[in-house]
Amino acid sequence: MTSEFWDVPVGKIAAVVTHLQMFERPAPRKIPSITAELVAHARPDLDWYRDLFTRVGGQHWMWFSRLGMDDADLSAILYRDDVQLYSVRVDGRDEGVLELDFRVSGECELGYFGLTPAMVGMGAGRWLMEHALDKAWGSKNSRFHVHTCTLDSPQALPFYVRSGFTAYHRQVEIADDPRKTGVLPRDSAPQEPII
């Protein structure tokens, strides 16, 4: 058995990215009853979006790609008719995000999917995934895909597999550490050391 180590330059972070896909909608799973609503946002306020994005993935994990975008680039994605954005609203507060990207004909990408810590552990993930599956397969699609990485919640990859996705490709991504560039606060994702 051979292995290789690759140096990650100072100021960078590295992640193993796993790509997953499915080619038909899996059988619906039983979901617990939760007091939440799925709210569509056709042209979201960008400050609202960045706040939700940060609370779902930027404080505890390393969700940073959208936070480094300027308003023009971010709105060019979010304001498209073939990109659908939803929030999980509980008692008037948005506590989760679901983004479905239909820009490639015949496919849907699960762009972003996540919940704030307040929603974890109550079955809200299964509830949200069932909504995602209904919406992805409600169109004439032949493929639904997603990718996750080792800088995300360790629950993400097994959750996607339980939801019916199959892993098919793996990559290593190296990026600037968003805590060193100011995109995320330095105390974000404390499980990942800053080097």
Rank of each mutant, 00 (worst) to 15 (best):
R93A: 15
P117H: 01
D82M: 07
D94R: 15
V90I: 13
I195G: 14
V90L: 06
G106A: 09
L67V: 03
M62H: 09
P178L: 00
R66S: 05
L110K: 05
L85N: 06
R126M: 07
R25I: 00
V97E: 07
S65C: 02
R80M: 01
L78N: 11
W6S: 08
L184H: 04
D71H: 09
Y86C: 13
G121L: 04
D152I: 14
H147D: 15
S105H: 08
S105K: 07
H19C: 08
W63L: 05
G68M: 04
V172Q: 12
G106Q: 12
T148A: 06
R126E: 15
V90Y: 02
H41Y: 14
W63V: 05
W61K: 05
Q59M: 11
L74D: 09
E4V: 11
M119A: 09
M122E: 08
A156Y: 03
S33V: 08
T116P: 07
Q191F: 06
L38R: 14
A118P: 10
I34T: 04
R103M: 12
R55H: 08
G111E: 06
L98I: 05
V183L: 04
A40N: 11
A167H: 02
R89E: 14
Q84L: 12
A36H: 13
V172F: 14
G164S: 00
M129S: 11
R29G: 13
Y49E: 14
V97T: 05
H145C: 04
G68I: 07
G92T: 13
G138M: 03
D94H: 14
A136T: 00
A76I: 07
E109T: 02
T116F: 11
A15K: 14
W137I: 06
L67A: 07
L115T: 09
R170M: 06
R29A: 13
H169S: 09
A27V: 00
V88R: 09
S3R: 05
G121N: 09
M22K: 05
R25D: 00
E109S: 05
R25K: 13
T116D: 03
H19E: 12
P154K: 07
D51L: 12
D47V: 15
H169I: 00
G182W: 04
I174Y: 10
V88H: 02
Q155A: 15
V83I: 14
L110H: 03
I195V: 10
E37R: 11
E109I: 03
E99C: 13
P32Y: 01
E95H: 06
G114M: 12
R143Y: 03
W127E: 11
T148W: 01
S75C: 06
D45I: 09
I31R: 08
H60E: 14
L52Q: 01
F102I: 01
Q191A: 04
Q84W: 04
T116N: 05
R162Y: 11
E192P: 01
L110C: 07
M69Y: 03
G58D: 06
G125N: 04
L52H: 04
T116S: 00
I195Q: 07
A76N: 12
A72P: 03
A136H: 02
E192W: 09
R162I: 03
E99D: 11
E192A: 10
T116C: 08
G11T: 05
P158W: 15
P154D: 13
P32K: 11
E109L: 13
E130R: 07
W48Y: 12
V16N: 12
E37L: 08
R50V: 15
D45N: 15
V97I: 15
M69I: 02
S153M: 10
V8M: 07
L46D: 13
R103I: 11
P9N: 10
R89Q: 12
